[in-house]
Every structure is written in C-alpha cells, then in structure tokens.
Design a protein around this nucleic acid. Structure first.
Lengths: 330, 330
DNA sequence: CTGTTAGCGCTTTCAT
DNA sequence: ATGAAAGCGCTAACAG
C-alpha cells in the first residue's frame, strides 16, 4: 500500500492546476504571498488531498540549512545523558529543529563529528565524553559544556559565591574531583585558595573500574574536605566510604544538577546546586540563537548556582526516588 | 576560523586536477573503479587535504535513500526506552544508518511521523507510546513492537511454552496486565484458558496516577495469579501490595527483558524471560533488511522466551543494581 | 580511462 | 498574479 515515489511540489501543482513555484510560495510565505484566493484554496486542497510533505533533503540542499542539530554523546545508558538528550529533544523541536544523535567514546569523537558534518547539521552540541576535537574543520557553531572549550561556545555555571559559602569555616586538606579538563576545576581551585585550604584537583578516568581505583587512592590520603563533581562519582565515593573507609568521615560536598536518592545520605554536607534543566535549555537556546544570527563568534553564558546545606528546606527538593534533572532556579 | 561554504566534489576535483565525476567514482566505487593509479592518488590527496565530506542531503536527493532511520518514541526519561534507543543507535550505526529521534505522546504520533517522512527516513521504528498511525501515508517500511500492528512489520516473542510452564499447576482467578493493544494479550489469554484459569486481561493507562488507580481496583478483586507486562508496572504492583494490601499474597509473574533490583522481591514467583537486547537487535535488523531488500511486505519475526522460576540459577542474572536490557539468550 | 549531461525536489530571482 | 529558469551537490548513464 505504499507509494512508489514521494509526492513532490509538482504533483501538488498538477493537482491544483497551477505552476509548482506558486505552491512553493504558498508553503513558504503563506499569508504574505500575493495570489488569488481561488489559487490559495486550490493549493491548500491539493496539499491535503495528496498529504504532501516537503523533502527536507531538497530544502537543505537548496537553503544550505538543514534545521538539524547534531548531538555528540556517550552512552544513553547513563541516566544523566538520557535526561539531557530528552530535554534537548524537546527544546529543539519546539524551535523547529530535529536532533541527530551520534554516540561516541572519547576515541571516536572525531569520526562521529564527521558524520554530523556530512549530514549538514546546522550546529553541534558536544556532551562528551572526552574532549571536543579541534575546531578547524567544523563548519557550524558548536557548544560544549564542562570542558575547556577555547574556540567553542559554552554554558557555564557561576560557582564563586556558592563555593565561598560551602568553604566557609573549613580548613585542612581538600580535594576536588573532576573529569578530564573540566572547566570548573579552575573556580574550585581559586575558592580553595581563597579560604586557605590545602587544595588539590584530581582528574578521574571515565571507566568505572579505573575510576574506582583512582578514588580509593585519593581517599587513602584522608582529605578533610571532598568536593565531587557529578552524581555518579558521588555515589561511588559514598559506597567506598562504607565498604573500605568506615572510620573516615570527611566533609563531602557535591556539585550537582539532578535529583536522586543518595542525597539522603547523612555524610553529605551540602550541595553546590545549579539547575540541570536550565543548563540544557540555555545550551540549546544559545546554539539556536547563534545559528540563526549567523554569528560564528563563540558565545559564553553563565547560569547561577546556589549553595544548599544538607538539611535546609531547599535540600529536600534534591531528594527523589528517581533520577531527574533539577528544575528549580533561584 | 570556519569555512564560509562547504567543500564540494568540484573543489576536490579542481585541487586534484580532474573532472568531478571521477572523484565521485573514486568515492563510491573506490577499488573497482578503473582509473590510473596516478589519478587515484591525486584524488585521495585532495580529499585529505581539503578534508572533504560528502553532503548527505545531496546524496539523499539523488539516491532517494537517506541512510537514516526514524525512531518514534516516548520520553527518554524512562530507562527502558533510553536503553532501547541506546542499543538501536549502536546497531544502526554499525549498519551505516543514522537515527533521527522524534519524541511524541500518544496524541502527537501522527505529527511526529510527518516530520520523519519529511526528513526522508528510509524506515521507521515505532516504540510508542500509543498506537502507530494508519499506514496509508507512510512511504517506507515501519516496524512496531508490542502492538497490534496489522500492516507493519513486527518482532514478537514466542510466549507459548514459557507461559505453559508458568501456569502449570495453578488454578483460580488470574489477571494479565498490559498497555493498550499489546500484541501479547492474546497469547496470555490462550494460555490462561488452556490451564483452566479464570483469566481476564486488563489494559492499563500510561499515565502514572491513572495507572496506580487502575491497579488498585484490579488488586481489590484479589486475583490468585497476576501476570504483569513490563518492569515499571511490576514495581508499582509490589509497592501497592506493600502499602495497601499487606495480607494479600498472590502469585506474581512478570514478562520482562531487563535487569533490576526489584527481582529480589520474594513475592515474585517467576519471570517470562526474553532477551531485551535480542529484541532490539532483531528489530533493527529486520528493518534494515527490509529497506535494503526493497521488499515492502511486512515481516514478522519471533524471538524465544523462557520461563525462569524465582530462585533458579538463571534467575540470578536478572538481579542487578542497575537497570539494563537483558542480553542472555537460550 | 576521462568528461559531459541530466535530474533528484526545492527556493529564488527575474520575467511576463 | 503567475511562470520560466537557474542551481544547491551529487550519481549514473552515456559519450569520447
């Protein structure tokens, strides 16, 4: 029961008894296009009759714009990424864009990028893992989060004040845990030094087993303060403390933008909070703006953060049986 | 630092000092295309030099094939769907296809489908929720799981034997819980009748609250045997039994293809198991085969299932702290 | 072995 | 108000 070939403008035009360029005008400039009511109606009918659906490829070829955004991401088995993708899908479709997803690990990022470029994407969102490839060959805007992203746009979190609140009154040895190249590392270090802490940053490997091993070694040094970036590493640290370091009770802070069950853990002293939803929304919004403004200059945007002490009223919103990106903004 | 316009075949041809159709030949028929070694080398160099990347839109327009598959899915916030998408992404990219995802709820499925058709997808995977729209207007193969899918291809689970094992020796009132239109409903009913059970099927709403309400009503009737389709509903039933029906201990079976923590619950009597991974793999494979064979006739495929009694050695593989699609096949 | 040509479906510019 | 023509980048059929 399927059509052999697709319905084209010409088919519609023939059915409506007009020239096919008129149909194109009707579709693209509907109210403004000046044509007789008669024609307008005939075209509309023909379109509905035939269930005409314009070819995106032809439009892309002609317009040089695909209305598609590429997303480079690691495994969607990771709840955080799945939620980010989900939200991005919603945001972008509301703006009239489709999302083309390529999965990649740190090694295959370049290859995946090639695929996106080949597919004529108008912009790229890089969600990792690993670092984004060099920009030279990328003919469209790209936005990168939580990375040193020199030539690209980025959405960042303004951490300064909340870190100051978190570090207030602390002393001794402190460590910050990140993935490679995290753009947040710098702010954490500055804050550590401002408060006279003996501060050190660590980059963790993505791989679970290597990460576990790295975390063990870090815990062995018994830092008084541990600052953890990300939800998953936080859970790992809590598990390690339970299994291998029962008598060790450091102050734990995490920088997070999602809800979860682990926040009920009494060993967490507080959270550097930012809205996960806002982060994704801003990312999509910045990228689309950049595409549509045709300004290729990288854009930097910051979203606010807030320190939430364990047990405070705001802290409760972080606790949920299910993983979610946080939505609350201050 | 970005290029103003994309590099085309002609750019490469000019750089290599040959006609652009030769470059096309080189790219598409590399080893077989007969041309001088000299030319071959010059073209290869030019391609690398310019970092040429063929335009997918132009190819799609020309070839009538986009090497893209559309996926219609509900929210990726649902772990099951996220895992399905993740696996599909891997499977399809290995076959040279990209995946274009459109999120939809039951109402917007038609609209979402239009978008995919407009984007010239070569095939569609319908993951729900809700029912797939009528086929009339879909110009490409489509595959649907767990639904009455009359004119479409489907991958189904061969349930007969495992249901017989599960029902063996049972008697009394039994209920089966599904989502609308589940294609599995029929097999469950047949099995129920074969074993002389007083069997009834129920269709549950997707929405959490309405579902909870429906489940409560079903439990009020105190069926001796409860057969649950799907992971999430199973968890809901267990929670309800704990909270509202403490003295009620029905025999619970679930039909599942994922791992989770809830299997440790002693109230589960056994699982109608099938491999979630196999299901997705077959789905992708059937669809791609159909696309490439250009056979438009719907294809039906079955994968095996097995009854796994709670506590048996196989049962252990279902228990995992993290949600995963099951991979084991028998 | 290499080059010419047509055309996929669409939008835009420029006639009529 | 409507139509004709060009061309986006590519491939395949056909000449040279």
């Amino acid at each position: 029961m399927q059509r052999k070939t697709r319905i084209t403008l010409k088919d519609v035009a023939k059915a409506a008894g007009v020239n096919f360029t008129l149909v194109s005008k009707y579709i693209n400039h509907s109210p403004q296009a000046r044509m007789s009511e008669e024609t307008r109606k005939r075209i509309q009918n023909a379109i509905e009759e035939l269930d005409y659906c314009p070819s995106a490829s032809a439009r892309t070829l002609r317009n040089g714009k695909s209305k598609t955004i590429g997303l480079l991401s690691g495994d969607l088995t990771n709840a955080y990424r799945a939620h980010v993708v989900n939200l991005a899908l919603h945001e972008l479709s509301a703006r009239g864009y489709q999302l083309l997803i390529t999965l990649s690990d740190a090694d295959s990022a370049n290859e995946a990028m090639q695929i996106l470029v080949g597919r004529d994407v108008d912009g790229i969102i890089f969600v990792g893992p690993g670092d984004p490839p060099l920009s030279a060959k990328i003919p469209c805007p790209m936005i990168v989060n939580d990375r040193h992203s020199q030539p690209y746009s980025e959405v960042n979190v303004d951490l300064r004040n909340s870190l100051d609140e978190a570090f207030d009154g602390l002393s001794g040895k402190a460590v910050g845990l990140f993935f490679d190249n995290s753009i947040w590392k710098g702010e954490f270090e500055l804050a550590g030094h401002r408060h006279g802490l003996e501060y050190e940053s660590f980059f963790l490997p993505f791989d679970y087993d290597s990460r576990l091993c790295a975390l063990k070694n870090i815990l062995k040094a018994r830092p008084e303060v541990i600052l953890i970036n990300g939800w998953h590493t936080t859970v790992m640290i809590l598990e390690l403390l339970t299994s291998d370091f029962r008598n060790f009770t450091p102050k734990i802070f995490c920088h997070a933008n999602c809800t979860g069950e682990f926040y009920t853990d009494r060993r967490i002293s507080g959270v550097i909070y930012s809205s996960g939803e806002l982060m994704v929304r801003e990312t999509c919004s910045v990228l689309v703006d950049q595409i549509e403004a045709l300004s290729r200059a990288p854009v930097k945007r910051q979203i606010p953060s807030k320190f939430i002490k364990a047990g405070s009223p705001d802290y409760r919103m972080l606790i949920s049986k299910h993983f979610r990106l946080t939505s609350h903004t201050f």
